[in-house]
Design a protein around this nucleic acid. Structure first.
Length: 427
RNA sequence: GGAGAGGUGUCCGAGCGGUCGAAGGAGCGCGCCUGGAAAGCGCGUGUACGUUCUGCGUACCGAGGGUUCGAAUCCCUCCCUCUCCGCCA
């Protein structure tokens, strides 16, 4: 949610900034709503004020033993008029809230212009894509050959398409990756490990910005209340500070959590249908920062660097890309994507997305801190980033570490987690 | 699943249907005291919106309805927390 005060005081600037991400801020509708809101509010408040005054006089008259009957008559008409004004105001306020909560976050000043991912800007590259002396296979083919270490047929038999079954050393490698990431972030990067619910309520999803606009992307649970499977750990972990007032000494807060993520992938029919790139269920290690406002830009660099460390330790070639305005997510002011080299696809593919939402989520979930400078409760800044998407990292390891015979060498960094297995083979 | 208790400001905690934005305490800020500090004492200390803005008004005591001229206080529904019992990885 944007700061309503800013939207009111400089709507033209807001509209201009939002245009960078391709969002058309409806100035006309906003002005119409705002003008009506103002006049209705003045009207109801005046009527309420009048009624409060009369009611007080009734109390006094009663105490003095006077006849209050005529006074009651007067109030009756007042109440009727107030009721009408109140109803109109309430409807309008709902309309206004819906309007405001559907507006995406404002892009940072530095965000490049552009419409889609083809306009994203590459910031840097690390590592060199491997040169194979044979034709590189993709993870589907490699996984199949490893005694059905990756099995998509059985998964769709159990559930539907876009799910995967992993077996044996492949499943083990997947688990090793998770442990390796968690250990690195907790031991070397100073993150506190958290375990959270995988099912959350609508308020939490509103807080991080998935609701009300993106319900179609979620799996809803059949239950008495509106509950949803989490699409990312960002939702439960960030909401940990929802409705809280943090002490200055508690900041910055750095948390890491490993969770499965569930996404309906509605509207992605036909995209990445082969393999494990785009699944309804995947594991992810997520980093969350809750920081003082002036620290958030630096925090994004730190968080992204922490994610990059994983790729470096695994010796996987990648590049860092700054998202252009048109490619930014709803809650983000600025996003850096990490794209890993996939020999099977002969291209870089997204494996992490690190965003600074500034006070956008904090405002929606009422996450504040006591600023010692001002003595006031102010909104914190929140950031999130994958470090990394585990399924995609598994793919990257399989494809980059493949050998001519179809076996896969275990990266050095993962060896301590593989119980002595140094190579995945079909034997 | 059954029985009960409760949700009030940054925190704890009072609150007969009108004089309650809300006692008292803690915390925090300023001042006094002190060589300095602690203790002690004094004063101050919510948010949002509107406005004819050194002021005034309106709203907010879990959420939403209702009763009433008037609700933190009464009634209903829902959500959440806690205690006991049952069941259970």
């Amino acid at each position: 949610m944007l700061d309503p005060k800013t939207v009111r005081s400089e709507p033209e600037t807001i509209a201009e900034r939002l245009a960078v991400r391709g969002y058309r801020f409806d100035l006309e509708t906003f002005r119409r709503l705002e003008d009506r809101r103002r006049s209705l509010q003045v009207q109801t408040e005046e009527l309420q004020s009048e009624q409060n005054r009369r009611s007080k006089s009734i109390g006094k008259a009663k105490a003095a033993g006077e006849d209050i009957q005529p006074l009651l008559q007067e109030v009756e008409d007042l109440k009727r008029r107030k009721g009408e004004a109140e109803e109109a105001l309430r409807d309008l306020q709902h309309e206004m809230t819906d309007f405001l909560s559907a507006i995406p976050n404002i892009p940072a000043e530095t965000v490049p212009e552009g419409e889609d991912d083809s306009d994203n800007v590459e910031l840097r590259r690390w590592g060199t894509p491997p040169a194979f002396e044979f034709e590189a296979r993709d993870h589907v083919s490699l996984g199949e050959a490893l005694n059905h270490g990756l099995d998509f047929d059985r998964a769709s038999h159990l559930a539907q398409s876009r799910f995967a079954v992993m077996r044996g050393p492949v499943a083990r490698l997947h688990r090793a990756l998770t442990q390796f990431m968690m250990d690195t972030h907790t031991a070397e990067h100073g993150y506190a490990e958290v375990y959270v619910p995988y099912i959350v309520n609508a308020d939490a999803l509103y807080g991080t910005g998935q609701l009300p606009k993106f319900e179609d992307d979620l799996f809803k649970v059949e239950a008495e209340r509106d509950l949803y499977l989490i699409p990312t750990a960002e939702v439960p972990v960030t909401n940990l500070v929802g409705d809280a007032i943090l002490a200055d000494a508690e900041l910055p807060l750095k948390m890491v959590s490993h969770t499965p993520c569930f996404r309906s992938e509605a509207g992605s029919y036909g995209r990445d249908t082969r393999g494990m790139i785009r699944q309804h269920q995947f594991d992810k290690v997520e980093l969350i920062h809750v920081v003082r406002p002036e620290e958030s830009e630096a925090a994004l660099e730190e968080l992204t660097g922490n994610a990059e460390t994983i790729l470096k330790k695994l010796d996987l070639p990648y590049r860092v890309v700054e998202l252009c305005g048109g490619d930014l997510g709803f809650a983000a002011t600025r996003t850096l994507d990490l794209e890993v080299w996939l020999p099977g696809q002969d291209q870089y593919r997204e494996i992490s997305s690190c965003s600074n939402t500034r006070d956008f989520q904090a405002r929606r979930m009422h996450a504040r801190w006591k600023n010692p400078e001002t003595g006031k409760n102010e909104y914190v800044h929140t950031l999130n980033g994958s470090a990394l998407a585990v399924g995609r990292t598994l793919i990257a390891v399989m494809e980059n570490y493949q050998q001519a015979d179809g076996s896969i060498v275990v990266p050095d960094a993962l060896k301590p987690y593989m119980g002595g297995v140094e190579r995945l083979t079909s034997q």
